[in-house]
Computed example of a mutant assay.
Amino acid sequence: MRVVPRRRKDRGSPPGPVPAGRSAGAAVATPVPPSGGTETLELGPPPSEAAVKRRARAAERQRATTELKRSRAARRRGTARRDRAAREHRSSLLVMVITLGLLIATVVVSGGLIAASMRTRPVTLAAPLHIYPVTQTVPGQCPAGTQGITGQSSSGLACYQMSQGIAIRKVADLRVQRARNRGAYDVAVTLRTNDRRAFATLTRATLNRDLAFVVRERLVTVPRVDTPILDGKVVITGPASKAEANQLVRSLRGR
């Protein structure tokens, strides 16, 4: 009896034919695809020269656009700085002009006040100015004991008899002025407030009569009262020249 070895049962598929050059039972290596699938890395052809030029032009345009934006931003910043500097300069000029205007106005006002104070400063007379109402004018010198004073009239010496008058020691203003309707000059006397009332009363009582202005017992002038003087502004007419008017001012001052 012959013993035959039992054939091992193969659970898989029956073995195929053995390739040439290989012995039976040799292991066969099967290529395994990469993990994650069957993708493969393929390198395409190099870019063409036109594509390279297009990319270069696009990059150049992008750089130019960036530079233009930077330039515009820098110009805007420079314009803003110039505008701010111009506004500050205009503000400084405006402040300077206003300050100069205020300074000029202050000088003008101060000068006006000084001039006004000089005009309104009282004039102290060297001797009291006596003003008497003239009651009668007699030709020739005054007799002894007569309440009057001898002076020169248009017809020669005359005795001016007088009644009670007032005495003025200071005036607000005393000057020569040009006559309005004539080519001659007048003498303007402005009385102070405390003398105006007495002089107004005197001129009311002597309307269309003469007043004698006497300084140091000497008759200076004898003007006629044409209207009551209530504001203390006396205008003595008569001097034919400016020299005569200046001499009358000196005499009224007591010099």
Score class of each variant (00 low, 15 high):
Ala29Cys: 08
Gly44Ser: 06
Arg2Trp: 15
Pro143Tyr: 01
Ala198Ser: 08
Pro14Tyr: 09
Val109Ala: 09
Ala245Ser: 01
Ala212Thr: 05
Met118Val: 06
Met118Glu: 15
Arg253Pro: 00
Gln62Ile: 10
Arg224Lys: 07
Ala105Ser: 05
Ser92Thr: 15
Ile131Ala: 01
Leu207His: 04
Glu60Arg: 12
Ser23Lys: 14
Glu39Tyr: 12
Arg253Met: 08
Gln164Ser: 12
Ala58Pro: 02
Ser154Lys: 05
Leu191Asp: 01
Val32Gly: 02
Arg204Met: 10
Val222Leu: 03
Val189Asp: 03
Ala127Leu: 14
Ser71Gly: 00
Val222Asp: 01
Ile131His: 04
Gln141Trp: 10
Gly111Trp: 15
Ala80Cys: 00
Arg90Gly: 00
Ala126Glu: 14
Thr137Met: 09
Ala116Ile: 11
Ala198Cys: 04
Ile114Leu: 11
Arg82Gly: 09
Asn194Arg: 11
Arg119Gln: 04
Arg175Lys: 09
Leu157Cys: 01
Pro128Val: 00
Arg54His: 13
Val28Asp: 07
Ala243Pro: 04
Gln136Phe: 09
Leu93Val: 08
Ala64Asp: 11
Ser92Glu: 15
Gly37Met: 12
Lys69Phe: 10
Met1Phe: 14
Ala126Arg: 13
Ala240Met: 11
Glu42Val: 10
Gly16Gln: 00
Thr206Ile: 08
Val171Glu: 00
Leu230Asn: 02
Asp173Leu: 08
Ala26Cys: 08
Val220Pro: 00
Glu67Ile: 14
Ala144Pro: 07
Glu217Asn: 11
Arg204Gly: 02
Pro31Trp: 08
Val134Lys: 07
Ser155Arg: 15
Pro34Lys: 07
Ile98His: 02
Thr30Gln: 12
Pro14Phe: 11
Val220His: 05
Gly37Tyr: 06
Leu103Phe: 05
Lys9Tyr: 13
Ser13Gly: 01
Asp83Asn: 07
Gly165Trp: 08
Gly151Cys: 05
Gly112Glu: 15
Arg87Ser: 02
Glu67His: 11
Pro17Asp: 03
Gly183Gln: 13
Lys242Leu: 09
Gly37Asn: 06
Ala26Arg: 05
Arg84Val: 12
Gly112His: 06
Arg121Phe: 06
Val52Thr: 07
Val189Leu: 07
Val220Leu: 02
Arg224Ser: 13
Val234Met: 05
Arg119Val: 09
Leu252Ser: 05
Ala127Trp: 07
Val4Asp: 11
Val222Arg: 03
Ile149Thr: 03
Gly21Phe: 05
Pro143Trp: 07
Ile236Lys: 00
Gly36Arg: 05
Gly78Pro: 03
Gly25Trp: 13
Val4Thr: 10
Ala51His: 04
Thr146Ile: 07
Arg182Val: 14
Thr106Leu: 12
Ala29Trp: 11
Ala158Phe: 07
